[in-house]
């Protein structure tokens, strides 16, 4: 029995690309509106799925978060970032500064999530 492999780009692959683009658009449509609302005002810090701290986005602060690892969160000039972390990879630090509502910074190793929410809490739904 001889098996043949399709190793060169085919026209049919365009369907795969179209499918992925459609999925991307679909997810924007589904969540884009719900998650992104008006101006952000509050920084919520979650650890192990619990909101452990809440800060105003417009009051500069330096917040250490302990856990399995060690994060330092900085709020400065209406933006927030995880500026220091000793987790492997440091994806959270590389994520940079965020300022729009609905955006979040995540440090998976430390189970920390920094969420930006609107002036009033705009959470539509949380998956349980």
């Amino acid at each position: 029995m001889k098996e043949t492999l399709r190793l060169s780009f085919r026209k049919g692959d365009l369907w795969a690309i179209v499918l992925v683009i459609l999925l991307a658009l679909l997810t924007v449509g589904l969540w884009g509106r719900k998650v992104v609302s008006d101006t952000a005002g509050t920084v919520q810090i979650y650890q192990n799925n619990q909101c452990i701290m809440e800060y105003s986005l417009f009051q500069d602060a330096l917040i250490p978060v302990e856990g399995e690892y060690h994060n330092i969160i900085q709020i400065s000039g209406g933006k927030v970032a995880i500026v220091e972390s000793n987790c492997p990879g440091e994806d959270c630090v590389h994520s940079g500064w965020i300022k729009s509502p609905g955006r979040s910074l995540v440090c998976l190793p430390n189970k920390v999530e920094v969420r930006l929410v609107g002036k009033e809490d705009e959470v539509d739904f949380i998956v349980r």
Partner: peptide
């Protein structure tokens, strides 16, 4: 997995960007 583990739908907001990069 992230949505389940962190119980936050917010993370799924990244999915469209990740999908485009996946292309």
């Amino acid at each position: 997995m992230a949505v389940i583990l962190m119980k936050s739908i917010y993370i799924s907001g990244y999915l469209p960007y990740l999908l485009v990069i996946a292309l």
